[in-house]
Design a binder for these strands. Structure first.
Lengths: 326, 326
DNA sequence: CTGTTAGCGCCTTCAA
DNA sequence: TTGAAGGCGCTAACAG
């Protein structure tokens, strides 16, 4: 069933059918009715591939994440999906597992015209081979990126957020504040780490320790805490780079008999709703997850529509939510 | 940059370039080299849309979920993505928020040839309008569906799993076992409910109560527990249809001073890794989440390759993981 | 082994 | 207000 058959059945030309299909003006009402009737009658569905080829736009956006299982990611993706949908775009989801070759395979869909643009949440800005694949195609980095770098981005004030949180902990009397960070290839990891260092520096605190979780599963948080507890002088406060890791920390602290928050303050990152349900309820640095996704789409669409407009960088704000854990 | 330019630059025909591109045999080695050289030199990237139109296959699979934020969903989707990728397919993610019109909009991509098939995790089997949109296109239901129904599906032994779990609770001396169920439009909700009823029936237990969570966020679990606690005789055991809901239950039990597991056993569903990190560690009915995704893709691809083979139904097994909560 | 040719299904100028 | 015709970029017969 093609546009041509519809045209024949309706006794008009393919051009007219196309005009009806796309709500173009300049079709007599009676003609339109006739075409619409035929379309309904034979359940005609336009071939979108052909349309995409012809118009050279797919109205499809690619989203590259390293792991959709990370609840932070999935919430951002939900925001992306919602805003895309609202603008008539669809989402191609790519779970890269941080494997460069998979990312490369996916990014070739850009030059293949299968997608009109890409939102990445992965740490790819420092991978020249991938940047080259992206080339000049519309691209927005989400929750990752350096405002001073090329490439549009929607990020969060990682540096300040952690810096302020460390300062708050110090005010509250904590002396040995540790950071459980994630994969240091991400710029946001580096930014958070820098904020951490700066705050300790400002307060002239000598004690500092950074552990790296090899993963964003709570198990990794547990293991990081084990390593911290094995230190000659263990921390009396921990900032975790994800609420997921914080769950592991809370768990192991309980198991090891470390009282939270009395002997150990624990602060997560992200602001996932179940944080409030932990025991004790988890303090956290809340990110506007949905909004990160929404704004990323808005920037990307702007870029698709005006490829040569200046690059935009947007920084949203985090906010410390204090609960019982620290 | 099109195949034609490459052909011209290499001094061959477009057919030859196409053959090289697709690794077809019957191209002299020297010719192949020459073409490859030109392709590399001018960074030619084939237009995948054109190829898809021509071959009438997009190598793209649609995944329809109601909410990617549900950790069960995101883990299944990860399995889907992995297996699809391994077979050279990509994933189009659709977050329907259970809105029929959104689902309909997405499903039109099937007839639009943008995707070769669809995996649904939503409750759509009882929505005639959506089933009609799917028509005879390759379709597999994942984690949802009735083996006796038309439409291929990969499900889990919901009925038996809950039945066995209730029986186990009874053996352990529980008398008043409640079920916190989800959206009853899902077949799996109905199956679990049936298993629950059957087990109580078999044991001649009169007390029974089912609450419905309006949502799969832990808040909904909290609220459901509040309603159960308000009962004249509250339950001494609860099975929750999701670990996420169970977190809310554990939280509110703690808040209300209800001892778990002493006066209330709590058993979740799904087997999310952080369940073991709760306080107390959460017992749960574990589903093979990754495998659900993997098998769904395998069935779907089989269907795409042999549209007229008999429909397959596959049932994977759940397994009760007993921890401290009940 | 390679080239010519005919579409895939659609949109869109240009004429009528 | 409508139709005819060309072409988006590619693949796959069919010839040679």
């Amino acid at each position: 069933m093609s546009i041509e058959k519809v045209a024949r059945l309706a006794g008009v030309s393919t051009a007219t059918v196309s005009r009806v299909l796309n709500n173009h003006p300049g079709v007599r009402a009676t003609t339109r009715e006739k075409v619409l009737a035929v379309i309904a009658e034979c359940h005609y569905q336009p071939n979108l591939l052909a349309r995409q080829l012809r118009t050279s736009q797919s109205r499809m956006l690619m989203v590259l994440v390293s792991n959709i299982t990370n609840p932070f990611c999935s919430r951002v993706v939900r925001g992306i999906e919602a805003e895309a949908e609202a603008n008539g775009y669809h989402i191609l989801l790519c779970n890269s597992e941080s494997q460069t070759e998979r990312e490369a395979a996916y990014l070739s869909l850009l030059s293949g015209k299968v997608v009109d643009g890409v939102i990445t949440m992965d740490a790819i800005s420092n991978l020249p081979s991938l940047r080259q694949l992206i080339g000049d195609y519309p691209w927005v980095q989400c929750a990752e990126g350096d405002p001073n770098d090329q490439g549009a981005s929607v990020t969060v004030n990682n540096y300040e957020a952690v810096m302020a949180t460390v300062a708050t902990l110090i005010e509250r009397g904590r002396q040995r504040i540790a950071l459980i960070n994630g994969d240091p290839r991400y710029l946001f990891s580096q930014q958070r780490e820098a904020g951490y260092r700066k705050a300790l520096d400002d307060a002239n605190l000598a004690w500092s320790h950074i552990e790296y979780a090899h993963d964003v599963e709570c198990q990794a948080g547990s293991e990081a805490l084990e390593r911290l507890l094995a230190l000659p002088t263990p921390p009396d406060a921990i900032i975790t780079v994800s609420d997921v890791l914080a769950v592991g920390v809370l768990h192991t602290a309980r198991e090891r008999g470390v009282a939270v928050p009395e002997s150990l303050a624990v602060i997560g990152f992200d602001g996932l709703p179940w944080g409030a349900m932990m025991s004790p309820p988890l303090s956290t640095i809340e990110q506007p997850m949905h909004q990160l996704g929404v704004r990323s789409v808005q920037l990307l669409l702007a870029r698709i529509r005006q490829p040569h407009a200046p690059l935009q960088h947007e920084q949203l704000r985090c906010r410390l939510v204090t609960r019982a854990s620290g």
